[in-house]
Design a protein around this nucleic acid. Structure first.
Lengths: 248, 248
DNA sequence: CAGTGGTCTAGACCACGTG
DNA sequence: ACGTGGTCTAGACCACTGC
């Protein structure tokens, strides 16, 4: 069920890495390879312990770390599962706009355009791609209470998501689809936030006068294996809403 | 050395809370009470185990959680210490402005004014204070490369920091002083980020034309016991810099 | 060298979900 | 009733620090 050859980790640590870290990486590898699909239940802790030749406590420590990283989910009495992202969960984690009273904003989305091409200099930089790599570009308007408030440009490495732009459109939430269709699980995102004034085109799209201040969020999205899988530029006309951030 | 009465936790969990959580809370209480000061070394794991009447593994699990929350620091071969914030660490954790190339911004600071008064409605709201509670208000300009770029207003509950405004000024970094002088350890901050245009006064202070877009960060700072200890409003003229955020 | 945290094991019992 | 994860224990050995 595992790597083929029934491996036993020696008690002497390989390369001085703790056993539970090695087990953690083996479990991640199983998930990456697709052997354990999103939503699937893992073997029990004692079974994993036997398979990897370690104790149940060591398995526990490895799965603890993976549960903390949202890669596994534990359900007492049932088992340990590979975390399957849903559209709602992804929105909850990665879409952090709020009403003045703290209520979450649940946006709608309208695609403007989806194209393919060679990565520009800045796209190569933000996505850590080689010269000449192909990318998929997608732009859309996010609306709330029927009013547009975010103009968003998304750039994806085509190598990671072959055939994605085929039908010319993308779903409202991408991250759950990345996992279910391409086996790419989003871990976190790093953002650069600043302000700018709306250009003529941006103002027209967002239905406001040119020169209005916009919140600009430049996001790099990172998978559980550390690869950058998305570059997303969001221009936001907040108009009473705010962007919620936790620090420390 | 501990709570006075040599306590023994029963094996039957009190109120169904796991032993290690109870131990965690007892350790936090020791720190809050000042019995274990910032920078102090804790008794060894085995000594703690004997004191609390639990096993070393349970102590480990409690201190693991506290180390993850930055409340304790473990140093192999030396001991476990109460995390003592330094000005540099605090800046690293809570001041997240960067140069375009990703280099950290290390600001200077100039006090504008420090006053005391009764909390306004909005101050009561943001600091979770009762009507009529007293607050300390402090405003300052943050500069970088000798140019002002943040106009900051800080409001503190006077009850938490008695005598703080006595000499009429505050240090550049507050959070380390909160801990060393008042035993208040900062845990995290929640922020509401949006944009606004510079008023006449703000523009004058930040040395730019009125109407320029500013990044507005409304921060509530929270201590390890969950109390809100600070409300801080930062108006930022980024001008090429960006605010770094991690999501998920 | 002694003492500390870091890792790992083996075994026990409990709480929960399912059949 | 059974199997799962959740907690807790006791003991072992290792790695690091400081004397």
């Amino acid at each position: 069920m595992l790597c083929g050859d029934g491996m036993k980790l020696p008690k002497a640590q390989q390369g001085n890495r703790p056993l539970y870290v090695q087990v953690r990486d083996l479990i991640v590898a199983e998930i990456q390879s697709g052997a354990w699909a999103p939503g699937a239940v893992l073997p029990s802790e004692f079974e994993l312990a036997r398979t990897y030749g370690v104790s149940q406590g060591t398995i526990r420590k490895a799965t603890d770390a993976l549960a903390a990283d949202q890669i596994l989910v534990r359900r007492q009495g049932r088992g340990t599962f590979v975390h399957a992202h849903t559209a709602a969960e992804v929105l909850f984690r990665f879409f952090q706009f709020r009403e003045p009273d703290g209520q979450r904003v649940i946006p709608a989305s309208r695609t403007l355009r989806t194209t393919r091409g060679s990565a520009t200099r800045i796209e190569q930089d933000r996505l850590a791609l080689a010269k000449g790599a192909r990318v998929i570009r997608h732009s859309r308007l996010r609306t709330w209470r029927s009013r547009p408030f975010i103009f968003e440009t998304i750039v994806l490495p085509e190598a990671l998501f072959p055939g994605l732009a085929a039908n010319g459109d993308l779903p409202n939430t991408l991250y759950d689809m990345f996992q279910t269709h391409y086996g790419v699980t989003v871990a976190r995102a790093v953002e650069r936030v600043d302000t700018q004034t709306a250009s003529e085109r941006q103002a027209r799209l967002l239905d406001l006068p040119a020169g209005q201040p916009l919140l600009r969020i430049d996001r790099q999205t990172i998978a559980i294996d550390g690869r950058i899988i998305e570059w997303r530029l969001s221009l936001c006309h907040l108009d009473g809403l705010y962007y919620a951030v936790e620090v420390g």
